[in-house]
Amino acid sequence: MAERSSFDISRLPGFATVAVTVFVLLYLPIAMLVVFSFNAGDSVAIWEGFSFRWYPEAWQNEEVKDVTFRSLKIATAAALISTTVATMAALGTTRRRATRGQTFVYVMINQPLMVPEIVTGVALLIFFSTIKVATGYQGLGYLILAHSAFCIPFAYLPIRARLEGMDLTLETAASDLYANRWQTFRHVTLPLVAPGAVAGLMLAFVTSLDDVVITLFVKSAGQDTLPTYMLAQIRRSVSAEVNAISTLLLLLTVVLLTAFFLLTRKRS
């Protein structure tokens, strides 16, 4: 029978068991974190009843407010910078005929995805301390630059995916139809790239928001971001406050990634 002969991976023995186990392992810890963020007691291990107390408590903590705003500031700046660079890179690599060395350019742009974060962290630490000595500047600029750099491939990939395979003659057609260079960019290139750029912006924002390794190396004293602050808190004592903050971060990420999915899915 034809149905028997066709291969279907879901009919292999144990398929359902493996699938369910993987999903449980993936989501059970996160589910526990969310549940315990509503715990009435101090413990993160013993359930003492439902309460919202950790949310306002975390919000009233001046330190939490401080690091949250710093994280948002860095993530916004880094997302904008990396998306701008990534958009230009994507236009440069897709809106023209493929040339020799194209693959090399891809690898160069996606370098932060392959190089271990710890290497980038150490490299940036040494590089920035030279600049710090030379200029005396101590501000957030270093963190913003570092985050922009490793966010570029995250912004680049959805933009490139969006532009890839689009007819290369579209801009030629616009110029044939009396559009000058600026009008061609404004009415053809920009609208084509926009959904990809918004998706890239959100992905870069989320990536910057939860970075720990590179931030730890680059930050000066008093420049804790939300993730590095949470790490420090947990080292001292496990606080239920961190659960509440994590849950809120999770919510933000889910919202952004849902929007990302809606933007990048193929139009029917």
């Binding site: 689009m166 007819d167 003659t169 579209l170 030629t172 057609a173 616009a174 110029s175 044939d176 139809l177 009396y178 559009a179 000058n180 009415h187 053809v188 609208p191 084509l192």
Partner: peptide, 28 residues
């Protein structure tokens, strides 16, 4: 090309995918 009163029908059509049929025709 944008100053020449000459228009082209491209082999690939090169219709603007983000514009409607009417907007495509009205582009020129």
């Amino acid at each position: 090309p944008n100053t020449r009163p000459v228009n082209t029908v491209f082999q690939s059509y090169a219709l603007f995918p983000h514009l409607t049929v009417a907007e495509n025709i009205g582009f020129g």
